[in-house]
Amino acid sequence: MRKSWAEYKREARKRERDRQSAQERALNTSVFRKAFSDFCREDMRTGFASHFLILGSKWWDFSQDEGIEPLDRSEIDEEDQAAAFNSLGKAELVLSLLEDVVETLAHDISDFKRSEIEARIEEVKKTGLTGPNSKHALDELERLKKMRHNLNKRVRRTHPQTKAAD
């Protein structure tokens, strides 16, 4: 049976996603040479440990109509504690905290990649843009600058609306 246009597009999108993920994996050794763990340790990245102190135990269990039980009560403010008194309030607080975790981790990864790209740009500039390999060096410089430009873009991910108030 003949494929529909939607099936062809779906397959093309999958091929493009696979190509991009393979390309990103290849960058892990060619451009991103420093370990991410070293970057986090050297730059004193805070991470998101405080978020998990707020989440506490059984933060994923919404089957009981219980509020949030933080591991450290000093990490959560009174307003959030009062709002998360039941399973719905707890779910909304968990969603908010996980969004913060995603934002924090995305910033850390982006900062790491940007610093590594900057280091590779400096290496290319030091090797010189003249001589027999000048065309390759210029191409590499343009590729790195484009990667840096892509990291400066914002990405929007959509998720269902959770606010019901007008």
Rank of each mutant, 00 (worst) to 15 (best):
S21M: 02
R25Y: 01
A26Y: 00
A26K: 07
L27M: 09
S30Q: 15
F32S: 04
K34C: 09
A35T: 05
D38Q: 06
F39T: 04
F39V: 04
C40L: 11
C40I: 01
C40M: 15
R41D: 08
A49H: 14
F52A: 13
G56N: 03
S57N: 12
S57M: 07
K58S: 08
K58W: 00
W60D: 09
W60H: 10
F62D: 08
D65A: 03
D65S: 03
I68N: 02
P70I: 07
D72C: 08
D72R: 07
I76V: 13
Q81H: 15
F85V: 08
N86I: 04
K90A: 00
A91N: 08
E92G: 00
E92I: 00
L93A: 08
L93T: 08
V94W: 05
S96H: 11
L98S: 13
D100Q: 14
T104Q: 12
T104V: 12
L105V: 14
A106C: 09
D108F: 04
D108E: 15
K113G: 03
S115T: 07
S115L: 14
R120E: 09
V124I: 15
V124R: 14
V124F: 10
G131K: 00
P132L: 10
N133L: 12
S134N: 06
H136Q: 15
A137G: 14
L138S: 04
L138W: 01
D139S: 14
D139Y: 12
K145G: 10
